[in-house]
Design a protein around this nucleic acid. Sequence first.
DNA 1: GCTTGACCCCGTAGTTGCTACAGGGTGCAT
DNA 2: ATGCACCCTGTAGCAACTACGGGGTCAAGC
Lengths: 136, 136
Amino acid sequence: MKIGELSRATGTNIETIRYYERIGLLPAPGRTAANYRSYGDAHRARLAFVRHSRDLGFTIEEVRSLLDLSDNPTRECDEADRIATRHLEQVEEKIAQLSLLRDELARIIGRCRGGIAADCRVIEALSDHSHCENAH
Amino acid sequence: MKIGELSRATGTNIETIRYYERIGLLPAPGRTAANYRSYGDAHRARLAFVRHSRDLGFTIEEVRSLLDLSDNPTRECDEADRIATRHLEQVEEKIAQLSLLRDELARIIGRCRGGIAADCRVIEALSDHSHCENAH
DNA sequence: GCTTGACCCCGTAGTTGCTACAGGGTGCAT
DNA sequence: ATGCACCCTGTAGCAACTACGGGGTCAAGC
């Protein structure tokens, strides 16, 4: 298939596919006589793996390691487990941070009664960190 | 005070302070005879406002609008409220997304029993989106 | 008086993960 | 032959910094 078809099949921007090839995440495919990229099922599966991993929030470098493991199926999978576990920890930490943020924002907004900026609780709260309840 | 002192006082990288000045978020301060930047309390307060807003996740452009309101205290504060409310919605959406992610990751990792990559559930789950329970 | 070190200056390039051109070629239908 | 959709390459842009190279300034210590 040509790049446009692969793009539609995987929900990936064409520019992104070429970008992945450039940084060595996807192998360079064969070319047609007209120098068009020509992909097969293996390419599609690999790109799906990449997209799925990226959607789950893994960095490009993490995806590279995971692909590497996937390419060498006799290797121990400790590393995949380690990468995923560390990522899960990061996601959990991010959720905790954002929850504090959400509470702080809700508290700030809740105090605003409209009117002019001089009396605005949002502006005031931003000016003075000491009004905060959480560390952020 | 000089830039290093302001940096320590606000917990802001020196390069970041110069960057904020370059993009017009902070006013250019006076200079000493040796051409060193010289800051006063007003600068420190403004930078604290910026840092606090950035810590709360507002974009630079949002901070610009909020600073503008803060500089013009007779204006209506509807806009500050609108910016903060929209931002709160975005934070809540992000938390919801990350929570789905966390569940999916936990589910994937929970299935891994160690061993070689050929049998690794993490790799398998990444290869095949159909194993997922959530849309992401 | 001269060096050492901490601090400051500027301008530019790098980071992550794409996305968007500009300026061209290809392939098929009308 | 001419329109149109599709493809190619290479480079530049985005956010929000961060790092670097190559210099100037200033007080302290020998």
